[in-house]
Computed example of a mutant assay.
Amino acid sequence: MLRFWGQPKFSRDPLEPVGYELFLREGSMTEWEVPSDFSKFTASQIANLLIQTAPALPHNMKSLSVNLDIDQFIDPQFCQTFVSIQNEISCRHLSIELTEHPSDTPIPDQILLAATKRYTDANFAVILDDVGSGDNQLKRVKLLNNYVNEYKFAVQNFRPGESLEAIVPKLSFWCDLARTNNKVFTIEGVESKKDLLTLSDYQADMLQGYTLGRPVLLPIKGDSEKSLVHC
């Protein structure tokens, strides 16, 4: 069985949930696991699951974001399929997150740039996930900057090896770049009240983390709210 788990995204001011980042998980109602290979999922599978999931979500959770690895992101079929279901996901605003995971084969810049423009032209917001980690480094950010709406900085990617204080220079860099380039800036990895107080000083637009909301098994059409399971 394939289902979405969702971690709530919070606006910073006011601090309130506004949407979910969606994660694919495989399993049963009693046991779920991270898929070993996300590339095996087709655009149709993901889109059909979105159609089942979106209508069952709370009305205040207007924003949904789907993670795509780069090989999925550059495949025109994914964009075409998401365009085809926009009227079926209950007025939710769908964003596309390009993950930091590397491809098995190098992707030419012009292909990645064309894919990003394709999503923008189709009125999807494009999010660069985990900037400063994996392949989503400054070079890629500069390449795609004209077609990207949001940077996400994952504090948890630098833990436990570094303290929050040690991460501050990296965080400050990406925060300043987001402001300079007029991008939405999201901080992930808010895992304690201390984190929340410290990270709020950066006036990010959005916040995510365990202290705000852990991932939950999202319902689909036909489920009751009692079927929600917290991780």
Rank of each mutant, 00 (worst) to 15 (best):
A114P: 04
I220F: 07
D75W: 01
F23Y: 15
E100Q: 05
Y202M: 06
V66A: 00
A125V: 07
E191F: 06
I70D: 00
S44P: 01
T30R: 10
L57Y: 06
N149G: 13
Q80R: 14
I74W: 00
D37T: 11
E26K: 14
S172A: 07
W174C: 04
F153A: 03
L50D: 01
P106C: 04
D130K: 04
L199C: 07
M29A: 13
N145Q: 15
L94K: 00
V126E: 10
N181V: 08
T81Y: 00
K9L: 12
E16R: 14
I220N: 05
E162K: 14
I89Q: 10
L197V: 11
R159C: 07
Q86G: 11
N136H: 10
L177E: 12
F173M: 09
Q7H: 05
P58H: 08
G134Y: 14
N123S: 12
Y210G: 08
W174L: 03
K194T: 14
Q86A: 13
Q77A: 08
S192A: 07
N157I: 03
V18I: 15
H101D: 02
H93V: 08
D129P: 10
T186C: 13
V66S: 03
L144N: 00
E97A: 01
H230M: 11
E100M: 00
H93S: 11
D71G: 01
T120L: 10
F38V: 09
S63P: 01
L171T: 03
K221E: 12
Q110T: 10
K183P: 06
Q203S: 11
V229G: 03
T30P: 01
F124M: 00
T198W: 06
H101Q: 03
L2S: 02
D135G: 09
L24F: 09
G213V: 14
K194R: 09
K170H: 04
S227R: 14
M1L: 04
L196E: 02
F124E: 00
V126Y: 07
F185H: 01
Q137P: 08
K9F: 04
N136L: 13
D176G: 04
E16D: 05
T120K: 15
N123Y: 11
P17C: 06
C231I: 13
R140V: 15
A47R: 00
T42C: 05
Y20I: 09
K142M: 13
F73A: 00
E165I: 08
Y20Q: 07
V216G: 04
Y202E: 06
E33Q: 14
V190T: 02
A178V: 01
Q203P: 02
S103E: 04
Y119I: 13
F78P: 02
K193I: 11
N146S: 15
K193W: 04
D109L: 04
P55M: 05
Y151D: 09
E188Q: 12
V168I: 14
L177F: 11
D223Y: 10
M61H: 11
I96E: 01
L144H: 02
R12L: 09
E97L: 01
V66Q: 08
R159D: 03
L144Q: 02
Q203H: 14
N146A: 15
M206S: 05
V18G: 02
